[in-house]
């Protein structure tokens, strides 16, 4: 008998945990840059788990076409406080999470800090060579940074768990 499809929030939550485990393994092997790359994705997946738990599709899923007063049509995501324009899926997730999250829950404080410095730029810098300034991913992230980031994200994951039945 085939198993029922996993609920979307669980899928995102466990994908987030999987990224954090990969991050941990890479850190143990000395690859701080790879660890930060997976930590970044773990953070995104945990945000997505909360979005899905509140019944919203996770960007880039769920966009619809919105007709502007100017007559132009754009892609946008439905959100509690109006449509979110589809300029950037990462930022759309942050904006949607921000509207759906419970600011009194413990996870909000961690989110509020992490979103200011765990940026899309980190996703790029942890993966690619920055040719303009001759900076390799391993120049950018130290093991000490990864060793401190991961517990913060693991704590965030524990706190987000309350949203994922």
């Amino acid at each position: 008998m085939p198993s029922l499809p996993a609920r979307a929030e669980r899928k995102w939550y466990y994908l987030g945990l999987r990224h954090l485990r990969m991050s941990q393994r890479l850190l143990r092997s000395g690859f701080a840059d790879g660890a930060v790359f997976h930590a970044y994705h773990g953070f995104e997946c945990l945000l997505s788990a909360v979005i899905a738990a509140r019944g919203y599709p996770v960007p880039p899923e769920g966009w619809t076409t919105l007709l502007l007063p100017s007559g132009a049509s754009v892609q946008a995501y439905p959100a509690p406080e109006g449509m979110i324009r589809d300029f950037n899926a990462h930022k759309a997730r942050l904006a949607l999470f921000d509207q759906l999250a419970d600011p009194t829950n413990a996870y909000y404080d961690a989110y509020d800090h992490l979103r200011t410095f765990l940026t899309y730029r980190d996703r790029l810098d942890s993966l690619y060579y920055e040719a303009n300034q001759n900076q390799l991913p391993e120049d950018r992230y130290s093991l000490a940074f990864g060793e401190a980031l991961l517990p913060a994200l693991t704590r965030f994951a524990r706190e987000v768990r309350t949203e994922v039945p």
Binding site: F87, K91, F145, A148
Partner: peptide, 24 residues
């Protein structure tokens, strides 16, 4: 939705995670 990012150049020789957290 577009990125508005500031790069803060710090005077020490390290930029520990704790400093990111404190600045945030």
């Amino acid at each position: 939705f577009d990125e508005v990012v500031l790069l803060i150049v710090v005077r020490g020789s390290e930029r520990p995670f704790s400093l990111y957290w404190e600045i945030a």
